[in-house]
């Protein structure tokens, strides 16, 4: 059992939790994820690690209530327990193991969509701790769904906000803002790292390919075990089948078959709706599961 030591509301239906899991906190690196099971009947849900404190032994996750299991997690309070919390899973981001002098030479732009801002945060902080300023775009449907703005601002070079309805920051999608920065303002980037809904990452990649900027995406396919034993999370990258849970979750976005990935992600939509009905929920708009996943 894993104790919830702190719970915070970030936005409507989006909460942040610090979970006491010393072994996970001790080994976590940027880019990795955990798998959570809320209770005996719960499913295994992958969630990207959003922060970790090795001294306190805590790991932070951010969850958007979408399906049955995520709603049950969000309903828990400080002092309650999650049944299972396993990780860190997946490969750390590539730059973690690269020569830091080489990393410093690159101009990096992070592009986060929705709750994707949460997993982007520890990555931006990693760059900040290594003395590197990176630019960050955070996009959401509307102003009240922008999360972690202050936290990211503190560790980023420049933070740009985009809202689909123009209620805050740039009026439009994150792709529009990338074009604005690169094409209109003449900013130069060597690397884009994008985390958010699959459909957003697809369009970011289509644009950056045109602009000639290398792009890394953190894929969020359906997962079960998260350790490489089932292949539920398989994706086609550069014409090869990869298991996102062990070979990723980060891949070269220009090599990912997003259309296949999007279809595979919708595989359990019908079952999700059934499950939601059973739990007397009105609708289910989700990808199966959680924030960065499921």
């Amino acid at each position: 059992m894993y104790k919830i030591v702190e719970k915070k509301d970030l936005a409507p239906n989006i909460i942040s939790m610090d979970i006491l899991a010393p072994r996970v906190a001790n080994s976590a690196q940027p880019g990795q994820f955990v798998i959570v099971i809320v209770d005996e009947e719960g499913e295994r849900i992958p969630l990207t690690i959003c922060n970790y404190d090795k001294e306190k032994g805590t790991v932070n996750i951010v969850i958007q209530a979408m399906g049955s299991s995520t709603k049950r997690i969000v309903a828990l309070d400080e002092g309650d327990y999650l049944k299972d919390f396993v990780g860190p899973l997946g490969r750390p981001s590539d730059y973690v193991n690269e020569d830091i002098e080489e990393v410093k030479k690159q101009k990096v732009l992070f592009v986060a969509g929705g709750v994707g801002a949460a997993p982007v945060f520890p990555q931006v902080r990693w760059f900040h701790e290594h003395g590197i300023d990176v630019d960050v775009i955070v996009g959401a449907k509307t102003k009240e769904l922008i999360i972690l703005e202050d936290e990211i601002k503190e560790v980023a070079g420049n933070l740009y906000i985009a809202t689909d309805d123009g209620s805050y920051g740039f009026n439009g999608m994150v792709t529009g803002l990338i074009e604005e920065l690169v094409v209109n303002q003449g900013k130069e980037y060597d690397l884009v790292i994008s985390i958010g809904p699959m459909i957003m990452m697809k369009f970011v990649c289509l644009l950056t390919k045109k602009l000639g900027i290398k792009t890394v995406v953190s894929l969020n396919p359906i997962m079960v075990d998260g350790t490489g034993m089932c292949g539920a999370c398989r994706v086609t990258v550069g014409n090869e089948t990869k298991f996102a849970c062990v070979d990723g979750p980060e891949f070269d976005g220009h090599l990912v078959d997003f259309d296949e990935a999007l279809k595979r992600q919708a595989q359990y939509k019908k079952e999700e709706i059934e499950l939601a009905k059973r739990g007397q929920e009105k609708t289910c708009t989700c990808q199966h599961g959680g924030v960065h996943n499921g």
């Binding site: 719960g42 079960v224 034993m229 292949g231 296949e260 359990y268 999700e272």
Partner: peptide, 29 residues
């Protein structure tokens, strides 16, 4: 092989046995 509806036996059996997908009261589909 990556079409929807293609599973490894490990995935199919893990969902059913470990995650008890055959039971109505469990969440895993």
């Amino acid at each position: 092989e990556n079409l929807n509806g293609v599973f490894s036996a490990n995935e199919f059996l893990t969902r059913n046995n470990l995650m008890k997908a055959f039971r109505e009261d469990y969440d895993t589909p």
